[in-house]
């Protein structure tokens, strides 16, 4: 290894002084090589035993038992959801920018007219099957009407269950 780094020494033992591939293998007699080989194996085993016995090294999360305490980060990107205020109303104006921004045709915004003839949201179809969670729809929305939700358990037994309509509250996705 040729490196001008100051950290070069951290990778020295057994590695950089080699000229030919064979020369840096444990040298010496047959039995000496067996012994030095065993020592190298024991050092590695020592490390694994440390990890096995030291409780501070435990990193495993007990999913799904820890569902209640498992919190996703605020920016976590999962199933698309509509932002609702306390009355349950959304602020989607059916402008269709998210539909255009989507690379996969995941979103269909179907409009209808209210009694005064103004355009409003009729049906917001979200095809979870096609979604790549790229977040472009959320970034494009000028009203902040949609967010990538926190619900990450999205498996279903039926394909139809993964075509969601987001505009009506009872159709909101839930695991």
């Amino acid at each position: 290894m040729n490196t001008t780094s100051s950290r070069q020494n951290s990778m020295t033992p057994g590695s950089p002084q080699k000229q030919t591939p064979a020369s840096s293998l444990p040298s010496g007699s047959y039995f000496k090589r067996i012994v030095s080989g065993f020592i190298s194996l024991l050092r590695g085993m020592g490390l694994t035993v440390t990890y096995l016995t030291d409780p501070r090294t435990v990193v495993t999360q007990q999913y799904p038992e820890n569902r209640a305490t498992l919190l996703m980060t605020p920016r976590f990107r999962a199933c698309l959801t509509m932002v609702r205020d306390e009355t349950g109303a959304h602020c989607c104006t059916a402008c269709g920018l998210c539909e255009k921004a989507c690379p996969n045709g995941t979103i269909s915004v179907l409009t209808m007219k209210d009694l005064s003839g103004r355009k409003m949201l009729g049906k917001y179809v979200y095809r979870l099957l096609q979604c790549t969670f790229c977040n472009l729809c959320v970034e494009t929305c000028p009203f902040g009407a949609i967010v990538m939700g926190q619900n990450y358990e999205l498996a279903a037994y039926d394909r139809d269950a993964l075509v969601l309509t987001l505009h009506s509250e009872e159709d909101e996705p839930h695991a």
């Binding site: 057994g14 064979a22 840096s24 444990p26 590695g44 490390l47």
Partner: peptide, 18 residues
């Protein structure tokens, strides 16, 4: 740790050098 576990492991060296 990686050096201890794998780099200095004689089996690993035999299988990668040359």
């Amino acid at each position: 740790e990686f050096h201890t576990l794998l780099t200095h492991n004689v089996i690993f060296q035999e299988r990668t050098k040359g």
